[in-house]
Design a binder for these strands. Structure first.
Lengths: 132, 132, 132, 132
DNA sequence: GTGGTCTAGACCACA
DNA sequence: GTGGTCTAGACCACT
């Protein structure tokens, strides 16, 4: 699991880290039950403060993507991944809408847009298969 | 053009305002050449700070969605809308990837995901037709 | 709103602060829409670090008891307070069970236990009436 | 006596273990004079660290719920159970108050709250009768 | 001036 | 050694 952070991005580091881990799960390179590095080792691995890692882990735990075991470490949610909650749908649509709107403005057709989504979907799911 | 802002959202107000205007253009309720309220009147209309509106307008101008004329006021880009630039593609993909990854984690199939995009695309483009 | 913290308690400070605010709401001394001190002023008022206050506020926001407006400050949830969610019920029962079990062990009758709850309920709700 | 631990809970393991034993006493499934497994066997039974069990036992002994004899092992307090001490009352009220306050905030009436306590009281005392 | 983020260092409870 | 908490100081975006 290689974490790539953009320190110049306007997206907070803890948020980027969360996204990378979620992508890892989506791609299959992180499987349910897999251990994650401790906050300290993850922090030193990617060169950021341990509190930033801690924040990312805590939020991922709150959303149900990982489990934090007391003094044992962190693992990818081994039971059921979080499902399609109304809050998730609201959040997802709120983030998706501006993207689609801008795409329309810039002249992308519906089919082009769908193709981009298809490509990115395949890119994510196929990334993991290499690691299997 | 009705602007809906969520003051509690973590999305900055100026960003929400930009998105609303872009959605207006995408839906067709704002057409090329259409005038936009002045910074001052927009600010008082929706009850936010003048500088916030100014920031939104300036950024929209930078991206090429609107034109700001000193005397004539603000109008939707009457000439060619901004196209598919590499910067746009990078930004779009950067925002799209985490959304798709999380959708996969939560068990959405590729087809369900595409359907959501289709629905939202139709929602945006049809919203405008009512206003024609 | 007077905040009383026990720095010696095993209950984390941010947790005590959350509880005090929730009690304030329950008693009616904090009403929906009422403003709360900024993280900085609350922190200096009660002599703790602003990050600790921030943590309490953030968690209260996540649970829906308060709203954090961007750059405007913090107010008690003016709309609908959080309701009876399954997660709340689980958490409440998990905390309540050991208390009731120990009470039984120590020889409290069911009626005595209920009376304690009644008394405490009245104590909380009447505290606020003085402040009306 | 079946011990159920939640390794992901924020409640320390030794605390959960204490609570389970107290609930066992409250329900009657553990009676005064009944033997408890040794620290060693309890630890291996429920798959936790020996020191964790030791800590739970020591605290239970301090509070007077069990007796620890060097040779004879561990037994539920055969003489008088700990009573209603001022320290107990303070601790109980400190834990009870936030629960009741939150219940009020979430719209539970006093009667609903009392009913929850009644139900839980019956749940605990009736659980034991099955084991008699 | 407000909250949000990041860094840093320290202590503690837990296992 | 692990995560949890608290403190402290700094910078930034937003309004």
């Amino acid at each position: 699991m290689i974490i790539q952070l953009d320190m110049q991005s306007d997206v907070p580091i803890y948020n980027q880290l969360m996204n990378q881990i979620i992508e890892g799960i989506a791609s299959g390179s992180l499987k349910p039950g897999d251990p994650l590095p401790s906050v300290r080792s993850m922090a030193s691995d990617i060169g950021i403060n341990l509190h930033t890692v801690n924040k990312a882990y805590t939020l991922l735990k709150q959303e149900g993507f990982i489990q934090i075991h007391r003094q044992k470490g962190v693992v990818i949610q081994p039971d059921t991944m979080p499902g399609i909650t109304p809050e998730y749908q609201d959040k997802r649509n709120a983030y998706l809408k501006p993207i689609i709107a801008e795409a329309i403005c810039r002249g992308l057709s519906e089919e082009q847009l769908l193709q981009i989504v298809r490509d990115m979907h395949n890119e994510i799911t196929q990334t993991g298969e290499e690691n299997v």
